[in-house]
């Protein structure tokens, strides 16, 4: 599929595996001396638990809208071209759940832009992960663990 920027920003939510290379090609250019890529990957440990896999759920139209707003705010603060991509559905250990690729003239601003975008994405984009381990599961809601089905207990 051909990826397309709108202005300085590309956003996408997909259930396909993520690949940073097409996003890097999308944002790079002769005026961009620095391209910083952040990849958030599924870790095998969380809060002392052995994670088996994660399942991501998103409020898709709102999440894409928020990701676009974050991209546009980032490109206003640091002149850059930026791509934000999030995966949904079941993800196995080590797979990438989110990519942020920021291209700027110089590396200092590229690192800052990338960091701002991923930190803000984690604060307000409506995407949740259900963490599944050998003998249980929880929704991760910020710092809290929340029960998946009604009537079950969680550590909240």
């Amino acid at each position: 599929m051909k990826l397309c920027m709108q202005g300085a920003v590309f956003v996408q939510i997909t259930s396909d595996p993520l690949d940073p290379a097409p996003l890097m090609r999308l944002v790079e250019g002769p005026d961009m001396g620095a391209v910083v890529t952040f990849s958030g990957n599924v870790r095998n440990q969380n809060r002392g638990r052995e994670v088996q896999y994660l399942e991501y759920d998103a409020y898709r139209p709102m999440a894409e809208r928020e990701m676009r707003a974050i991209g546009e705010e980032t490109a206003t603060r640091w002149p850059c071209r930026i791509a934000l991509q999030h995966r949904v559905g079941r993800l196995e250990l080590g797979e990438a759940s989110v990519l942020v690729v920021a291209a700027c003239a110089h590396r200092a601003e590229a690192f800052e832009a990338c960091r701002f975008a991923i930190d803000t994405l984690k604060e307000r984009v409506p995407i949740w992960k259900r963490e599944v381990w050998q003998d249980g599961e929880v929704w991760i809601e910020g710092a809290a663990d929340a029960p998946v089905s009604a009537g079950t207990d969680a550590s909240r």
Binding site: Y56, P61, K122, P126, W128, E141, G142
Partner: peptide, 26 residues
């Protein structure tokens, strides 16, 4: 309608409403 609002915001016919728990940790 895809925007964060306050609890006192009125709804109108055919609005799309949702309630957003704290988003993904990490």
């Amino acid at each position: 309608n895809l925007e964060y609002v306050s609890w006192d915001t009125p709804v109108t016919a055919d609005d799309e409403v949702s309630f957003i728990p704290p988003v993904s940790g990490g």
